[in-house]
């Protein structure tokens, strides 16, 4: 009876109001990107703002040429590498920390509050602090040392909090069963814990890559001589008068859509195969 009324229940009026609100929100998120999309097709002599000065694909080609200011290729590959390193380190270290936090140990609350502090300390302070530290001890800041550390202070808290959420809901009886069957600690982790928390670790991986890939303020004083992509883009907002930046925005957004479409497509295909097997 309850089920029946639920499926038959008419949508309340509030649903339509809220749905309209949600649609407006999505429009708000995408709206300004439309301007970028249009302006990336500016004519060769066009500027950063309206009016359009002709129509061309010039700026997309320009994206792959040597720039007067800015180096997309180098900075992109550095950002990609840095993002991947941050991703791997964050997954491994957060997973280890998550395991550690399942038992109480001395200093656990210190680490926990450090993680919270790391989350709320404004990014520019991390940048300034690490920059000063390296300056004083006369180490050369590099994207793979100081900037890597700066990014980890940003991704660890998220990794740790996600691990908390996972292990809070984790049923320890599976591990006990494995141990009763004579599995070693390592085997228990490898064959029982890892497969169960695997999806969340993928979440941590994606999250930390995205955070690092787009991180700006923490990289500002820690990247050393070579720029990451967000630094390059920031430099270009004040040092470029052409729509090449918009072309970059259009290309990256298009690329994101492509990746997501591919991912969704793969999931759909896998589901169908599974369905056929069953």
């Amino acid at each position: 009876m309850a089920l029946l009324t639920k499926t038959r229940e008419r949508r309340p009026t509030s649903f339509y109001f809220l749905a309209a609100f949600f649609a407006l929100f999505v429009l708000f998120l995408y709206g300004p990107m439309l301007t970028i999309f249009i302006l990336s097709f500016q004519g060769e002599n066009g500027g950063l703002t309206f009016p359009m000065n002709g129509f061309s694909f010039h700026w997309f080609g320009n994206l792959f040429e040597q720039q007067a200011v800015g180096d997309f290729g180098g900075s992109f590959s550095r950002s990609l590498k840095l993002g991947l390193i941050v991703m791997v380190v964050t997954v491994v270290v957060s997973f280890m920390a998550g395991l550690a936090f399942r038992k109480r140990f001395r200093g656990d609350s210190v680490i926990f509050y450090l993680a919270i502090a790391s989350l709320i300390v404004p990014s520019i302070l991390i940048s300034l602090g690490i920059g000063l530290l390296f300056n004083i001890v006369e180490w050369q800041p590099q994207w793979f040392t100081s900037a890597l550390g700066a990014h980890l202070t940003w991704t660890f808290p998220f990794g740790l909090l996600i691990m908390f959420a996972v292990f809070n809901r984790f049923d320890p009886s599976y591990e006990e069963a494995a141990r009763d069957l004579g599995a070693s600690n390592w085997q228990t982790i490898q064959y029982v814990v890892l497969p169960m928390v695997g999806p969340s670790l993928i979440g941590v991986a994606m999250f930390s890559f995205t955070l690092s890939y787009d991180e700006f303020a923490r990289t500002l004083m820690t990247a050393g001589a070579l720029n990451t992509l967000p630094l390059e883009i920031y430099g270009m907002t004040t040092n470029v008068t052409t729509p090449v930046l918009y072309a970059l925005g259009t290309v990256t957004t298009g690329f994101s859509f492509l990746v997501i479409a591919l991912a969704l497509g793969t999931v759909a295909i896998m589901r169908r195969r599974k369905g056929q097997k069953a």
Partner: peptide, 12 residues
């Protein structure tokens, strides 16, 4: 603050 900002402000 930068040369190009002045260009953009004027051009727009």
């Amino acid at each position: 603050k930068s040369f190009d900002e002045s260009v953009n402000l004027m051009a727009s």
